[in-house]
Computed example of a mutant assay.
Amino acid sequence: MIEFFDRAGSEAAFCQDGRSLYLWNGKAAAFILDDKVYAYDGRFIGWADRGWISDEDGACLLFEHDAVGGPQKPQRRAKTTPGPRGARPSRAEPHDAPPRPSASLVWSDRVLSDLI
């Protein structure tokens, strides 16, 4: 299981199959197709690369423990057990992704749960 943490070092999301992203409470949040992250309604959310989930502008939303590059990672806080995985909604046809921005060294002002 891949665990993702937010800019405060708190548990935020997890992925067990490399394609389905769940919020820590178990709610199905998004899916990863190639290196792009989409909400289940097909909206483009951001990018998955080098252990980071970034927003559409390239600013970092989440990191996994061995993420490479990006902004300074906070110390990870003690984590709880993730919630049971909820049902995944049907996937809508993914919208076109914008051109990929350069890798960023800044944190996004956005929160993944607000983007879904």
Rank of each mutant, 00 (worst) to 15 (best):
S102G: 13
K27P: 01
S102R: 14
I53T: 08
K27S: 12
D55Q: 11
G51C: 04
V106K: 11
D41I: 00
A30E: 07
R50Y: 07
A13E: 08
W52D: 07
A103G: 07
P74M: 06
K73Q: 15
D41E: 05
D114R: 13
L61V: 06
G69M: 06
L23Q: 14
E64R: 13
A39Y: 01
D109T: 05
A59E: 12
F63Q: 08
S102I: 09
R19K: 13
R88K: 15
L62K: 07
F4W: 15
G51T: 01
W24G: 07
P82I: 01
D114K: 11
G70F: 01
G83W: 07
P98T: 04
S90D: 09
R110F: 03
K79P: 00
V106H: 09
E11N: 08
V111W: 04
N25V: 06
R19L: 07
Q75E: 12
F31T: 01
A48L: 09
G46T: 06
P82F: 02
G51K: 01
V37I: 12
I2R: 09
A67C: 09
T81M: 10
R43V: 01
S20E: 14
K27F: 02
Y22M: 09
M1G: 03
D35H: 14
G42T: 00
R100G: 10
D41Y: 01
A97H: 12
F31R: 06
V37P: 08
Q75Y: 00
A29Q: 05
L105F: 06
D66T: 00
A59Y: 01
A59Q: 10
D96Y: 02
R85A: 15
E11H: 06
G70W: 01
G26Q: 12
W47C: 07
G26V: 10
F63W: 08
E56G: 10
G83A: 14
D49V: 03
W52L: 14
A59V: 01
S20R: 13
P74K: 06
Q72I: 04
P98Y: 04
Q75L: 08
R85F: 00
S102W: 04
V37G: 09
Y38E: 04
S90C: 02
D17R: 11
R76K: 14
W52T: 05
F63N: 10
I53L: 15
K73G: 05
